[in-house]
């Protein structure tokens, strides 16, 4: 664990000195701020449900930019040789990298807490859905980052990593559309269960369904496993 933390620290540090990270964070915060204002003005409702939804879509767009660097950059510059010849396991490298990106995401998320705080001051919003909504957004983002990490660990090209991650996320986002409408069949059920959007929606409604939590956690676990395998494969190449 100590080794993973060392790698995480460097990763976080590198986020906070990189232009990409600041651009991404600025983009996310500006869009969230605008959407908060716009939806509040339009609906006059003291809820962050709309904000959470729009934040999720924004996240879908920008999270590949947060993760594309993680392993791909190490491969491109050759620093991967330092990592993989140091006495740390591949799993420690992946976990460290993942925690680093998660740390940056959480920092970004914390900055959006001002909106619920504003609502709490000026109105009387329902606190439950706000909390579950944020938990949902955290899990969703964590899932996105894990997918992005897999993509980044497969290539040395950051663009490929970003596009690949985005494609997978978008597919998992809209995968239930095929099965919606029409009769409920086995396959429509399977696809609906894979949809990140549907899972996330439950959280914004104030529902914490264990299945949803398990879904995101297993998605993350599976992605980290794939990333470790991809990294180890470099050795046997």
């Amino acid at each position: 664990m100590k080794n993973a933390l060392i790698i995480m620290q460097r990763e976080l540090r590198s986020y906070f000195t990189s232009t990409i990270a600041y651009t991404v964070a600025a983009f996310f915060l500006v869009v969230c701020g605008y959407l908060f204002f716009a939806t509040l003005k339009l609906t006059q409702e003291a809820t962050i449900r709309y904000l959470l939804h729009n934040a999720a879509v924004t996240l879908l767009l920008i999270s590949p930019a947060m993760t594309m660097r993680l392993i791909a950059e190490e491969r491109r510059t050759g620093t991967i040789e330092l990592l993989m010849t140091s006495p740390v396991t591949d799993a420690q490298v992946i976990i460290g990298k993942y925690l680093g990106s998660l740390g940056f995401y959480v920092a970004m998320l914390l900055l959006t807490l001002q909106y619920p705080l504003i609502l709490l001051r000026v109105g009387a919003p329902d606190k439950g859905p706000m909390l579950t909504g944020y938990l949902g957004l955290l899990l969703l983002g964590a899932g996105f980052l894990a997918i992005g990490l897999v993509a980044s660990s497969l290539t040395k090209n950051q663009i490929v990593a970003a596009v690949g991650a985005f494609a997978v996320m978008l597919l998992l986002w809209i995968v239930s559309w095929v099965g919606s409408g029409g009769a409920t069949t086995f396959w429509s059920e399977v696809l609906r269960n894979l949809s990140m959007l549907d899972r996330f929606e439950n959280f914004t409604k104030g529902v914490i369904d264990t299945r949803d939590v398990v879904f995101f956690l297993s998605l993350i676990g599976f992605c980290l496993f794939l990333s470790v395998r991809a990294l180890s494969a470099t050795k046997a190449r």
Binding site: S18, T77, G78, E81
Partner: peptide, 15 residues
């Protein structure tokens, strides 16, 4: 127990 200098020096430019 090994120190390694790869041909392509593994440095992080942002440090």
């Amino acid at each position: 127990r090994t120190g390694y200098l790869p041909e392509n020096v593994p440095l992080y430019d942002d440090m």
